[in-house]
Amino acid sequence: MKLQVENLTYEYQDSPILKNLSFEAESGDFICVIGPNGAGKSTLFRCILNFLPDYGGTIRLDGRNIKEIGPRELSSCISYIPQIHRPTFGYSVLDTVLMGMAGRIAVFSKPGPSEIREAEQALDKMGVLRLEDRDFARLSGGEQQLVLIARAIAQKAQILVMDEPTSALDYGNQYRVLGQIRELSEQGYLVLLSTHHPQHALQYSTGVLALNKGGPALQGAPEEILTPRLIRKLYGIEAEFLKTPSGTVILPKRQ
């Protein structure tokens, strides 16, 4: 599956958030979107998910304009994994995943054995099948994030859009979740993920999209794009790039 964004422009109250943004991605890509707060990371995602209709430019999926794809069909191509939040009422993990399949379940119907089997397969894929009878609200942040990813997989979309999936997770869970996401992209999913950590992008992504307030966006392979200059430009701080035998470390200087 191929995602093309052409000249995407979005203005909010007359000030441009995204300006002439173009990029392409296809199955197997793991694109990290980085940039300072307010650079338009979430806006970009919301345009791709067709939540914001009044943008300029075109977004295509395998050549088709997404505005011409119905919501149900679009949901079978692109899924959205929100930041974790505490639900008001406790649903079991299995029920949470089953909700992701609602687009395929008739209005007056309920999930049957085949849907339950698929939901369990999705949980198994993320390694959290053992949690299926737990209360979603009582899981740790990392577990909740994996369950939400399982929900997106059960939705059968090939493109996974994740808005800062690691922001609420502890140190260990951040890397466990990123590892799982990387595996998904290796299996052929197209992952679009926003993050506040250039280190995550450097270590896990296959491509980086750097959005800069007002300036032009940059796209390329992580080790080419991520430089001390870019860090300075995006975030206004100095950082050192330390090459080690097991990879490069981005070390911000003490301010």
Binding site: L49, F51, I78, S79, P82, Y91, G100, A102, I105, F108
Partner: peptide, 23 residues
Amino acid sequence: FLLRWRINLLTLSGEEAKAIGVN
């Protein structure tokens, strides 16, 4: 009663539900 499973979807945020393909 007929909508009993479906109204669970109202506990999702509007955008989450939309991404799942539900109005």
